[in-house]
Simulated assay, not measured.
Amino acid sequence: MKFLFLLIIAYLLGSIPSGVWIGKLFFKKDIRLFGSGNTGTTNTFRVLGKKAGTTVLLMDILKGTLATSLPLIFSLNVNPLVFGVAAVLGHTFPIFANFKGGKAVATSAGMILAYSPTFFVYSALIFIIMLYITSMVSLTSMISAILITLSTIILPFAIPQILPKFDWLLTVIAVALTIFIFIRHKDNIKRIKDGTESRVSFGLGAKNNK
């Protein structure tokens, strides 16, 4: 019963639609009606600005971190990644926002932070480097997902200081999330091919920003 109860709590934590609530409360805007229509960090930055975007980013990461930490907090002998996945599903299919949520990147990062802080830092560096190279959040998210998934297999044997042991569940979740992230970015992939994808204002590709 405790497992099921905490799993529901993890899903509900993930379901908190940070971008929607902040947009409505402080800006009187529903971000689902602007930009890409997505409720996540990137669209919040685009529609509401840097402060709102940063706040949503931190909140979405925190959702994943807190949910993944539930077994530790309540002394439950279960792989914490199970609860992290529940939060990611909540973020993507939030009960508080008609089951239409974000693309799972930030909340997945929060899950990794709770699971292994060193692996989180490693993953964040991959994301930052790829964002600087591409200047596109969408492309960065997809490439980073692939590299991080491969890292879950390689690092435990090559650099155990970053990820001490191989965890098959982590790899399975990483593969599933990578596939899911690609599916959620199908419109972005089309725009990337067409050369119309939005770019951030920094990095090597920023000069091509339209």
Results as ranks from 00 to 15, higher is better:
M1L: 08
K2I: 14
K2G: 02
F3P: 00
L4V: 14
L4C: 08
L6G: 06
L6H: 08
L6D: 09
L7D: 02
I8Y: 06
A10H: 02
L12M: 10
S15R: 05
S15N: 05
I16C: 05
P17R: 09
S18C: 12
S18I: 07
S18H: 07
S18G: 13
V20E: 07
G23F: 10
K24W: 13
L25R: 12
F26W: 12
F27R: 11
D30A: 09
D30S: 09
I31A: 12
S36K: 09
T41P: 00
T42K: 00
N43R: 09
N43F: 06
R46M: 02
R46N: 07
V47Y: 03
L48R: 04
K50V: 10
K50Y: 02
T54W: 06
T54C: 01
T54I: 14
L57K: 00
I61W: 01
I61C: 00
L62N: 04
K63W: 05
T65R: 04
T65H: 02
L66T: 09
L66C: 08
A67N: 00
S69K: 11
S69M: 12
N77C: 01
L81T: 05
V82I: 15
G84D: 06
H91W: 01
F96T: 02
K100H: 13
G102L: 05
A104Y: 05
A104C: 13
V105G: 00
L113A: 02
L113R: 01
A114G: 12
F119C: 11
F120R: 03
F120H: 04
V121Q: 05
V121I: 15
Y122G: 06
S123L: 12
A124P: 04
A124L: 15
L125Y: 01
I126M: 12
F127L: 14
V137K: 01
S141T: 06
I143Q: 04
A145F: 10
A145H: 07
I146H: 04
L147V: 14
L147M: 14
I148K: 00
L150C: 14
L150E: 07
S151G: 03
T152L: 09
T152E: 09
I153Y: 13
I154Y: 12
I154K: 11
L155G: 09
A158K: 13
P160S: 10
Q161I: 14
L163S: 10
P164K: 09
K165D: 15
W168Y: 15
W168E: 13
L169P: 07
T171Q: 08
T171V: 10
A176I: 11
A176V: 11
T178I: 02
I179F: 15
F180I: 03
F180M: 12
I183S: 07
I183L: 14
I183T: 04
H185L: 10
H185I: 10
K186I: 14
K186H: 15
N188Y: 10
N188I: 11
I189W: 10
E197M: 07
S198E: 14
R199Y: 08
S201N: 15
G205R: 05
N209L: 11
K210G: 15
